[in-house]
């Protein structure tokens, strides 16, 4: 186990460095290279953060879903660690999305917040996984806590398709999706020069995400190791 730690650490550093470079590129593309929107002006550039943030959050909760399913099935600590780690990061990226959305909403919509279906369901997503993290810290008996959390982690994920479809099923202030839709190609909604900025930023967000996830996974592994050793020695 000690033998694999060094190359793992190097891989992580590489991922972190790459994330910094691509995010710097994303800032350049988003703030300088991409043209301002004809209607919204410069404020539209918030999209280059807002969309990557929520897509990263979706990915993170998908990993919670996968980790939770695997844990219920096989009861391996590794899968529970994945679900727990991804839930923490998902909450972070969802909170970021809501903050960015508010800053975008005020100058364009005219309000920081409104209770339409899209926004409300996103707030519920944040609540579900904040609840998930609270549940984990509240239940002392570890295996039982992990099982309950896994169930909540799976159920909570169903909010995401609901968020996605909300703009079709209900009347909302929020606009329909620009990218995640089968009926139109991304560059039909977003001008290619703007799409490049979005793609670079999304790549940067993904790199940052996997860097943070790898750090958090390692932290979870170390925690579990310490617990196992204490248990073996009879120290609690």
């Amino acid at each position: 186990m000690a033998g694999s730690a060094q190359p793992q650490k190097q891989g992580r550093s590489l991922l972190g460095g790459l994330a910094v470079v691509v995010i710097a590129g994303g800032l350049y593309w988003g703030l300088i290279q991409a043209p301002p929107d004809a209607l919204q002006g410069d404020v539209q550039r918030i999209m280059y953060l807002h969309l990557p943030s929520i897509l990263t959050a979706y990915l993170s909760f998908f990993l919670v879903f996968i980790g939770s399913c695997l844990y219920l099935w096989k009861r391996e600590k590794r899968d529970d660690n994945l679900a727990h780690s991804a839930a923490e990061l998902g909450v972070l990226f969802t909170a970021l999305t809501i903050i960015e959305g508010s800053i975008w909403g005020k100058p364009t919509w005219g309000v920081w917040w409104t209770w339409d279906a899209r926004l409300t369901l996103t707030a519920i997503l944040l609540l579900i996984y904040t609840g998930y993290l609270m549940l984990r810290s509240l239940i002392e008996e570890e295996d039982r806590g992990a099982v309950s959390a896994a169930v909540l982690g799976i159920i909570g994920f169903l909010d995401i398709p609901l968020i996605h479809m909300s703009v079709y099923w209900w009347r909302t202030l929020h606009q329909p999706p620009s990218i995640l839709r089968p009926d139109k190609l991304p560059w039909e909604n977003i001008h290619p020069a703007m799409l490049t900025a979005l793609v670079v930023n999304f790549a940067g967000f993904l790199l940052l995400y996997f860097y943070l996830l790898s750090l958090r996974l390692r932290l979870g592994e170390i925690r579990n190791e310490i617990k196992a050793r204490r248990l073996a020695r009879g120290v609690y």
Binding site: P36, A38, Q40, G110, T114, W169, R171, Q175
Partner: peptide, 29 residues
């Protein structure tokens, strides 16, 4: 007492696109 503006999901440096004609979602309830 409050006006909120709705905007489309289209972004472009040119205002060449015709403004949307429909307001409520296509598959609206």
């Amino acid at each position: 007492s409050l006006i909120m503006a709705k905007h489309a999901e289209e972004y472009s440096p040119h205002q060449d696109k015709a403004p949307p004609t429909s307001f409520v979602p296509a598959k609206e309830y």
